[in-house]
Design a protein around this nucleic acid. Structure first.
Length: 287
DNA sequence: ATGCCTGAAGGGTTCAGA
């Protein structure tokens, strides 16, 4: 089973890139963030195309900002929007949707940005993460947490720690909030796979940041222990950040072997849809 | 020029993103 997460930074603007990406990578489950469309608009944009491809959709959006969705062709059950117990901003924000797909609880998240440390937005972010931890802790053993987490787990996850000193995404309280979720038994499967590599998922649009590979790793795929044990591949799809009209985030893609008890049997994508094996050499540079 | 792009809303500009 292949599961992916991608902050698309407006589904409307990403349409020319989205379906080609979906068809090339052929994920069984997709978590989307910053769709920036209402649920009706999401259906207008993609409903027919996704239905043709066998995906069920759980969209949770609003106009203008935020918005998340889960697409699945291995089942989509027990959909829950929002995070129970999390604070609302002035108006409730569409930042979380969860569903059971292929026998696994999938949490698709767009964690609040935080803006400035010690701001109301920052406190909102920390409280939101604390509530999220409780929801995950109460969930089933087979689970994944995916999305734009808006936290760089370590200094290795930003291009220059000095450039981010004192800023959101790297502060100890944010990292502690993430660590509390990991302490539930979750694994950061991309970092596990690429322990010493330069791996980013976000590059600012400005100043040729992507071309220079000056980015951050803030889009994460976390897997509970039984799911982490099934990881066959975990990588950042940099191709999607290249070319014309990309999002500023790249997708993260995780391949899982079949569960040991054999209770799920999603089709394995063909070799052509899988990345070339990279062994332990460095990720390719942009260009 | 801490806003070097991009997107949304709405109106000739602003706010937000990380």
């Amino acid at each position: 089973m292949r599961i992916a997460t991608w902050n698309v930074n407006s589904m409307r603007q990403r349409m020319p890139r989205f379906l080609p990406w979906l068809d090339e990578r052929s994920p069984d489950v997709v978590c989307l963030q910053e769709t920036k469309v209402t649920d009706d608009a999401f259906t207008e944009l993609l409903g027919t195309e996704l239905q043709e491809r066998g995906y069920a959709v759980a969209a949770h959006g609003q106009g203008q900002w935020n918005g998340v969705a889960i697409l699945s062709r291995v089942g989509l059950e027990d959909v829950v929007t929002g995070v129970a117990g999390a604070p609302d901003w002035d108006i409730p924000e569409a930042r979380a949707v969860a569903a059971t797909c292929g026998g696994m609880r999938v949490h698709c998240l767009y964690v609040p940005n935080g803006r400035e440390p010690d701001s109301d937005h920052y406190r909102y972010k920390l409280a939101w993460l604390a509530a999220l931890r409780e929801v995950i802790a109460a969930g089933p053993a087979d689970a994944m947490v995916l999305g734009d987490i808006n936290i760089a787990p370590t200094d290795e996850d930003v291009f220059d720690p000095g450039a981010f000193a004192g800023q959101t995404h790297v502060t100890p309280p944010e990292r502690a909030a993430l660590a509390e979720i990991l302490a539930l038994g979750f694994h950061d499967v991309v970092r596990d796979r690429w322990p010493t590599e330069r791996v980013f998922t976000y590059w600012d649009y400005r100043a040729g940041m992507f071309h220079q590979d000056l980015g951050m790793r803030i889009d994460l795929a976390l897997a509970s222990a039984p799911v982490a044990a099934r990881v066959a591949a975990a990588w950042v799809d940099r191709q999607a950040r290249k070319g014309t009209g990309p999002s500023d985030h790249a997708p993260v893609i995780v391949d899982l072997d079949e569960a040991p008890d054999g209770d799920i049997g999603p089709m394995v994508p063909p070799p052509s849809a899988r990345p070339a094996r990279r062994g332990t050499r460095k990720l390719p540079q942009s260009g």
